[in-house]
Each structure stands twice: as structure tokens, then as C-alpha cells.
Amino acid sequence: MKNSRNANVTVLRLFAEQLAKLILPESLYKRVSEAMMSNAITFERLRLPELSAKKRSVFIRHLDCGSCNGCEIELNALSNPVYDIERFGIKFESSPRHADILVMTGPFTRNLEEAARLTFEAMPEPRRVIALGDCAADGGVFKDSYAIRARPGEIDEAIREKGVYIPGCPPTPEEILKGILDVLAKN
């Protein structure tokens, strides 16, 4: 009972904080939140004027081809309020059928070849592919391994013609956003 009351109070406090931020002028809001002793989370949202200028609708699908999960961490970070990728009209989607852009991470392992190819084929034209991270570019530290193979020609072609390589190990969320912008500019 006590737990549930505490939780409700906290939820209401979070709502109130947001409302106060919206309604009150900034100086007053600061004073109020200090008076309330609330530890409201403050942060600076990343500004990317070149990306916010145009309104667009882009669906992205992620495809893991054997990454170390570092790139996944940064891709997931794009959805947090600091980067807030959705404000640019870009959204991560759950199905390759819905996707406009495929983001491939990792050096392309042999075991994933078939699954990766099927995912690529399930994607409607035009197939724009981003190779994310150093190991997606040339294999990175895994370059010479027996378990890594060259990407199938069609995927490689899609990257070269309609996609980009985003270098970095892993690239920062900001670099990924800029890379996505490059792909959109290319087409």
C-alpha cells in the first residue's frame, strides 16, 4: 500500500515537473524546482541544424552481421532523449519489409550469411544500406579471420551506390546521425 502510494506520488511529481517546465518561464521554473528540492534531470539535446531542416520519413532496420555489440549500444542510444532520432522523422522499424535503410553492423560472419541475405532480400527497393563501424567496412580487427567472409556482391553494391560507410569503433551517435544524413543526401 505504502509502496503504491509512493510510486503514484513520484509519477505525479514527474508530470508536475514537466508541466512546470512548459508553463513557467525559465527563471521561475528554476526557482520553483530548487524550492521543491526536485532533482529534475537536465541535459542538452544534440543540435543538428542540417538534419532538422527538412521534414522526412525514414524507417531504419538494424541487421547484426557479427558485431561486438558496441555499435548496437550506440544505435540504441540514438533513441534516447539526448539524440532523439525520432524528431528528425527517422524511426527504427521491426521488419525489413518496412525499411528504407538497412544498417549493417559487424564484419559479416559466415554463420550469418544466409540470414543476412534473406533480410536484405526482404527489403523493398530501393535498398539503401549503411555499413556501420570499422569492422563493417573492412573487417576491422577481425579482418583476417576464417570466420569472416566478403559480403555478397549485391549488398556491397547497395552500400557503394546507395549507402555509406560510417567509420568508427563504434561511431558515436552523432556520427551515425550524420551518416544517415549522407545516405539521404545521396539519393
Binding site: Q18, L22, I41, K55, R56, S57, E86, F88
Partner: peptide
């Protein structure tokens, strides 16, 4: 909802943009 989650969120006309874009794509 985006605002309550501290996000800026897409514009209120984003669903139109999504629909128009999807309409242009082939139905596989």
C-alpha cells in the same frame, strides 16, 4: 508522449509523411 518522456519527438504531421512515403512503396 514524447514531451512527457523529455523528448522533442516528431512533428504532429509526421504520420502523414509516413503514410505518404509508404503509399509510394510497392506492397511486397
Amino acid at each position: 508522449e514524447a514531451w512527457l518522456e523529455l523528448r522533442q519527438g516528431p512533428g504532429i504531421f509526421q504520420p502523414y509523411r509516413d503514410i505518404v512515403k509508404l503509399m509510394r512503396k510497392p506492397a511486397m
